[in-house]
Computed example of a mutant assay.
Amino acid sequence: MTAKATVYVSSTCPYCTMMTNYLDELNVPYETINVSTDPEAGQRLVETTGQMGVPQTQFNGQWILGFDPAGVKAALDA
């Protein structure tokens, strides 16, 4: 099974870059949605997760908040 992630980022977030770099290292395909340039996506994100911070990554049906390598590994193993 090929997993694909959706990573919500902002333009100035170093942890967002760390998350996308980590996914690159694991060869996990992902789509990025920049909430700085798409405020409607940011609002939908807050309504969905109740969290305002980024990165937030939807992966294999679960949400990973922040830069969380262990969470990514757990989602990959799920």
Rank of each mutant, 00 (worst) to 15 (best):
D77S: 15
Q51A: 13
N34F: 06
D24R: 06
A75T: 01
T57H: 09
A75E: 07
G71T: 04
I64D: 12
V72T: 10
F59E: 08
V9W: 02
L23D: 10
G61S: 08
E25G: 13
E40G: 07
A70C: 09
Q56C: 01
V7M: 05
M18P: 00
V35E: 03
K4E: 15
F59A: 04
P69Y: 06
I64Q: 07
V72C: 08
T12V: 13
M19Y: 03
T49L: 04
K4V: 15
M1F: 13
D68V: 03
A75S: 06
E40M: 12
N21H: 09
C16A: 15
P29A: 13
Y22M: 05
K4F: 09
E25Y: 05
N60R: 09
A74S: 13
M52A: 12
P29S: 13
G61V: 02
Y15P: 03
R44F: 07
A3V: 12
T2Q: 08
E40W: 09
D38Y: 11
A78E: 08
L65R: 13
T48C: 02
L76M: 14
V72H: 10
G50A: 11
S10P: 05
L26E: 01
T57F: 06
D38H: 12
L26P: 00
T37K: 08
W63S: 08
T48W: 05
L65Q: 13
M1G: 15
P55I: 02
A74P: 00
P69E: 02
G50D: 03
M52Y: 14
P39A: 09
G53P: 00
N21L: 01
E25T: 11
G61C: 09
Q51R: 10
P55Y: 07
V72L: 01
D38V: 03
E31T: 14
G50W: 02
P39S: 10
T48Q: 15
Y15Q: 06
M18F: 11
K4S: 15
T37G: 03
D24M: 11
D38M: 11
V46F: 15
E25S: 15
L65W: 04
P14N: 07
T12K: 13
G53A: 10
S10F: 05
M1I: 13
V28T: 08
N21T: 12
Y15V: 02
K4Q: 14
Q62V: 14
S10K: 08
V7D: 09
V9K: 10
Q58N: 13
T32C: 03
E31A: 13
A41E: 09
G50L: 06
G61M: 06
V9H: 07
C13M: 06
T37R: 08
E40S: 13
T6Q: 12
L26V: 01
C16I: 04
S11P: 04
M18K: 14
Q58L: 14
G53N: 05
Y30G: 09
L23H: 04
C13H: 01
F59T: 05
V7I: 10
A3Q: 14
T2C: 08
Y15E: 13
P69G: 10
Q43W: 01
M52S: 14
C13T: 04
T32F: 03
G66Q: 00
S10T: 15
M52F: 12
A78P: 00
T12I: 11
G66N: 01
M18S: 14
S11C: 02
V9Q: 05
Q62N: 15
M1H: 15
E25C: 03
D24F: 00
D24V: 03
